[in-house]
Design a protein around this nucleic acid. Structure first.
Lengths: 202, 202, 202, 202
DNA sequence: CATGAATGAGTCTTCATTCAT
DNA sequence: AATGAATGAAGACTCATTCAT
């Protein structure tokens, strides 16, 4: 578990090929051979990270979405905030996730990722259908592009965090202060984008 | 020039650390030592790619933005389509661009990228001010988050292209057919998002 | 230890830059990577040789010099023979030592060498003071030039051994016979030189 | 000629294997290919240096030694000072000379060096015979060891110059001041050594 | 069960040299 | 006569993995 934590950190900093298991073993304070011994190989270690991190998704959301006392917009906003929190808390992993979709395409990982994407599309799809039935959402919504805008905005913001912090001329007392500010802005911004996509008729 | 082309391709497929200069030399049909000979080092080769690709940006746009006969919305739509075209034509480079912002962080490259981001923010910033003066755009627009949504949506769509193609149940006769379809959908989607962000008042 | 032995041999034959770790690994019968594995780098291997060889100096001498029953001249002669033996037994190392003082100048090694020189100067300095106090050595002796003559004669003889063997018209039955002859001649010669420097008044 | 000068400098600083013809070409301000073009190869360049530098020896000495009005001791002292000057003026070359006798033993160079040594032995041999005939030098003098002591002292002093300067607690205004001081000390020291070897009976 | 030692394959880079111009 | 471009060989070093203990 500690190995996974260190590996996640180093993979996110240097990439899969850039981080050596030597580095990982050293920083984790374990024997070099133990990584191959426990995980089988470097590739398998990466897979273990993905299994570990992707298995934790969704719990609170599921039940909430079934709650009929909540309006579709409320559910959508909950979903947005929930995911902003989740991703901002696991930035290292999500950096790896992006890179993994571009390079090193390990089939096992790609499969895991696509399953997750499918689940995401299903959840949001149901929510949209519900909203459409209730007449508050418009017809013809491209779920995938909606999700791409959502996750794309989040990841793009995440990887250019430093640039953004430098751009807005506000001084923050600590990193977590800035992080909190960022989440608030993202929340507002993304809710607006969702609202537009879900209701705006050309 | 041919080396740059091959290197761009392999870097986008395997990442900077994953692509060896051996691979690059072989695929480019040149001697292994030629790469160090021409570019000095692997790092410098990467920098050469960035200088090559980032120097080509914008020309038509500049003049167009100064054209007073165009309404802010028209300009904005032109800008969107222009950038969709540009990025979809240079997908390999933009994949590298994303990874480079996450890992390896060569300072020279980061500097180039940040300068480009600044220019982007300035161009869109002027356009927005113009629209606000003319009363067609709302106040208080976060330029950076707007751009993050734009480029984030594009890159997210690009890296999950295969998933998207599989998801929509349409059969395409060729890759370029799908590519064209994708660009049309993206154009429509992003114009909607921009319109919302630029005009929608909560 | 075996690697050090082989490295010493090859460094003395081809020089630091001329001897590749490939050669060393091959001749030592170990894997190429083992040298980096054990020593860290080629430079560190060289440092290891110096630490190994310079740590062994002097032991018998120390006690001998404190022996008050020996006259200064006797001590000096013992010191001369001791050092001739030491250097002739480690000719390979002393060849490296000379080259290292001219080229490559690894600071760690230079430091070790200078410390050794300082110790040598101290030992001989004490001996000289003792002899002066007892009135058998003259005043105003340049310790460093005395040592330079001593070690310079030895090394010069060592590196032009072949020429010397060819010059004197004596046939030797074996290399070790010649070596023994050389040591005897050197001993006589150097004792004469020392005596002159220590007593001869202009 | 300029190439030879630069090559001599770099070979003396980094050794034959450590100095690349790239470095030499760059510092000499000539084309990289010109060195192979003019000299044939790196080895031949080294040979050219030796031919250049060893051809210049002896001119004034020859005539002087035939001068019958000079006593053997006077001739000897002239010879000593002459050679101290010569070597101290060509320190770079003599550093190369030492290394070349230890490593990289190019046969052509070794031949040149041995011829020079033979000439040296002849000249000093004649001088000694003359002195013996005149009854001022003793019998049984080992010419080679005498020369070894002479050149050995000089080279040893040369390569540990910095240590010596640091050891004696005298401050020098300039490098050439120290160099002059060194030559004076060496001259006195070596004349004493010679006198002892040539006259001292055990 | 856990690990220190060892390895072969691979990394990037630099080398002296050559060749067409 | 002189050189820029190009190259094969070799350089030191690091890698993920294995294996005997």
């Amino acid at each position: 578990m500690q190995i996974i934590e260190v590996a996640e950190k180093l993979f996110s900093l240097k990439g899969f090929d850039g981080a050596s298991i030597r580095d990982i073993a050293e920083e984790a304070g374990v024997n070099l051979a133990m990584i191959s011994y426990y995980f089988g190989s470097k590739e398998k270690l990466m897979e273990a990270i993905f299994e570990q991190r992707m298995g934790q998704v969704r719990m609170r959301v599921e039940s909430m979405l079934k709650d009929d006392s909540l309006a579709p917009f409320q559910k959508m906003e909950l979903l947005i905030d929930e995911n902003i929190d989740r991703i901002m808390q696991r930035q290292q992993f999500h950096k790896i996730l992006i890179c993994e979709q571009i390079i090193n395409k390990n089939p096992i990982i790609i499969k895991l990722v696509n399953e997750q994407k499918k689940k995401n599309a299903e959840v949001i799809g149901e929510l949209i259908k519900d909203g459409q039935k209730k007449g508050v959402f418009k017809k013809d919504i491209d779920v995938v592009l909606l999700l791409n805008s959502f996750f794309g905005t989040l990841t793009q913001t995440m990887i250019s965090k430093d640039y953004y912090r430098n751009f807005i001329k506000i001084e923050f007392q600590s990193d977590s202060d800035f992080e909190a500010y960022l989440k608030k802005r993202l929340s507002k911004h993304l809710k607006l984008v969702f609202k537009a996509i879900l209701t705006y008729e050309e």
